[in-house]
Nucleic acid binder design. Structure first.
Lengths: 347, 347
DNA sequence: TTGAAAGCGCTAACAC
DNA sequence: GTGTTAGCGCTTTCAA
């Protein structure tokens, strides 16, 4: 255990293959062969090289190799998420990481926070590092700028939200269907005054889910009431405030469909604040860890995040392996998990 | 909107500075100057270069530049987490990302899953890409292999868990203190039969928290009962099964200290299953999103994950900016958030 | 203000 | 089996 030089001052500059070659009395190319486990190196030559590498603390510079290597792969992909800290994003990240790992590929990740400019900046930062591919949850409403990256050979897959202005593999949940099912569920429990609580209206998933909600109302001849449709809330706090106001009105809704995980949390807080959590029904979209332990347990439309991440990553890697077929659009089914909050009857 | 070539077949290989120089009728070096925004380039020359770059869809290869650039920074750091999908890890990740972003640095991240071998593999993968620095939540019990990376100039900061066998900047929570406070809190509510439910016993944070728990018992002359100390559970499911068994015993505890977020979820499920959630007290370590909405609301020791991530990242960047002072050890205070589950009295 | 030449650390191609 | 040479895309150095 050597703790002497712990001051972060480089003792020496990193050793290169040249250094290893000199120390082992071989050539650069021989070192390269040993490091890369190629055939046709004598046992003892290889051993000498390995010892020299060990002594110098040699670490191959993979990036330098990528420059010349045929194919030029960096074995690195980039992942653009809405917000790394959101459970949906981080679960997606994890699922993608698992597949990447099987391919010995590592993952760059970043948060976009619904900012189209950030989307372009991060894309550029990743492309500058020559990622082999990009998996994107788009923030802006125009991804046409990515066409030139596809043309240049960077694989591209969209996940969670369909892109605009570019055709590429896309993996999404059955958003409209899931929202339709959730709304139908509330209707079947006697509700007609059903509020919709959503994130920014411009987000793909929000629009799809609102569509499903509207269709369910229509199919049941329930008039669409714009006063019950609250959109533009990106945090639990914002959603809570908005819903509190609605709950204070005399014609308050008897049920709520919350179209996203953070918004669901906010909605639950608003209900608790007014002590209505056992009287107003709620179904949310997207799972929340421990939802079975809430008061009341929360009925949610679960997305199969694992399947989404795996599908996106597998599509990306099949492109990287040469698949040039037409862009694929994959829909991953959602599941309605009944737990209590969604089964509260009207009146 | 051009969707013609959407088949992921590279139309052309990526343009290089050489290509831009040829198209614009200038030299490589002039293009380099324009791309990097250097002085001393004639207005119209710069304009010609920019147009050529645009037409070719030129993207600088930052990695190639790093090879020759003095300092050789890749503006990339690596982050080794326990599990990217765990809310603690992803919040830490997010906090670090924010600081990195200010420095125009991007983040590679990976999950270790408590696997020491994975720790070394990922470190190697990141070092091979020549990250400027590494922020590590160590999984194994020996980080001495990282000394050579420090020596070679890679900045290194540990977070959440102190390393073994190497001295480097470290940021941790006040684990023992927080656990002590939690246990004291239960004792003050009349409990003497307090169970400890923990993750793998070998994990740094677990050991620290168990220490705090034990100290509180000792200070209050409560005999330490090994039957009440359940360790080795890494998922809610495992923790739930273990606690269920304990709750079925005649001498079951009247209070539980759960030392980690997933374990807390498992403990809550066990309590709910036996319908004891309002009779057995529980305090958990680490926040859980929506804990205020649980039944009952869950009293938790909150870690200041944002502060931890910021401190770790700031330490890393100050090293990258040349700070060679002795390794720093930072402790971030925890807060006990009283919400209900921890205030259930004994009997 | 511009450019030619060298070289970063590595792999490819081709000798021997 | 092993080594030499060129060159990946870029920055540095130095000259014009």
């Amino acid at each position: 255990m050597s703790l002497e030089n712990s001051t972060h001052r480089p003792l020496r500059v990193r050793a290169t293959m040249r250094d290893v070659a000199d120390l082992s009395g071989t050539s650069l190319k021989t070192v390269s062969r040993v490091i890369n486990g190629e055939e046709n190196v004598a046992q003892d030559t290889a051993e000498k090289v390995r010892q020299a590498a060990e002594r110098l603390g040699y670490r191959p510079n993979f990036s330098a190799g990528s420059l010349r290597r045929s194919g030029g792969k960096t074995k690195t992909i980039g992942l653009l998420l809405e917000n790394i800290a959101n459970p949906f994003s981080s679960s997606l990240h994890r699922a993608i990481e698992e597949i990447a790992r099987k391919h010995e590929v590592i993952v760059l990740a970043g948060s976009l926070d619904e900012d189209p400019e950030r989307e372009r900046e991060l894309t550029e930062a990743f492309v500058s590092r020559r990622v082999d591919g990009l998996i994107v949850v788009p923030a802006g409403d125009d991804q046409s700028y990515l066409q030139s990256e596809i043309d240049s050979g960077t694989a591209l897959v969209f996940v969670d939200r369909a892109p605009t202005g570019v055709a590429a593999d896309t993996v999404v949940s059955t958003n409209a269907k899931g929202a339709h099912e959730a709304t139908m569920h509330l209707i079947h429990h006697g509700h007609t005054k059903i509020a919709y609580l959503g994130d920014y209206a411009t987000i793909y998933t929000g629009a799809e889910r609102l569509e499903g909600y509207k269709r369910a109302l229509k199919e049941n001849k329930i008039a669409y009431n714009p006063d019950y449709v609250l959109q533009g809330y990106h945090s639990p706090e914002e959603a809570e405030i908005a819903l509190r106001a609605l709950l204070n009105r005399p014609d308050r809704p008897t049920a709520i469909f919350a179209s996203q995980n953070l918004v669901t949390i906010g909605a639950l807080r608003a209900l608790h604040h007014s002590n209505l959590q056992h009287r107003v029904a709620l179904v949310g979209f997207d799972e929340i860890p421990g939802a079975d332990l809430f008061d009341p347990p929360v009925t949610l439309v679960a997305q199969d995040v694992l399947a989404m991440g795996e599908a996106a990553a597998n599509l990306l890697f099949s492109r990287l392996n040469g698949d040039t077929s037409a862009p694929k659009h994959v829909e991953i089914p959602t599941t309605l998990n009944l737990r209590g909050s969604g089964e509260i009857p009207a009146k």
